[in-house]
């Protein structure tokens, strides 16, 4: 902790203690705004859908972590497989998605 405060620091602290002497009390408007507000309810987003393959490319941390030297060729194949199988939902638009994608979250 602060063994010795410089004169500047002490002056700063004194100034803050004075300016903020009402902190977290009824005289502290910012605090009271928070204190008096109703607890926020979680957001609800209508027409929610879940992206399935965002970021699937390049994404092989698991194998990488354990097999740092094998991952490259492995993942390249894996990548391709995924991309072919599961083309981006962005490409498709929202009209149709295969069921498998639809129900993953």
């Amino acid at each position: 902790m602060d063994a010795v405060l410089s004169a500047d620091d002490q002056e700063f602290l004194d100034r803050c203690e004075e300016e903020l002497k009402d902190r977290y009390t009824e005289k502290d408007d910012d605090f009271m705004n928070v204190f008096n507000s109703e607890p926020s309810k979680p957001p609800v987003i209508d027409s929610w859908w879940v992206s399935n393959n965002s970021g699937r490319r390049n994404d092989h941390r698991n194998s990488r972590r354990h097999h740092p030297y094998e991952r490259y060729s492995n993942n390249r194949n894996r990548d391709r497989g995924y991309n072919d199988y599961n083309r981006s939902s962005d490409d498709r638009g929202q009209g149709y998605r295969p069921q498998r994608n639809r129900y993953r979250y």
């Binding site: 309810k41 609800v44 209508d46």
Partner: peptide, 12 residues
């Protein structure tokens, strides 16, 4: 197949 997106109260 509509759904909405939200978060549990605990997480929020």
């Amino acid at each position: 197949r509509d759904q909405i997106g939200t978060m549990s109260i605990g997480e929020w």
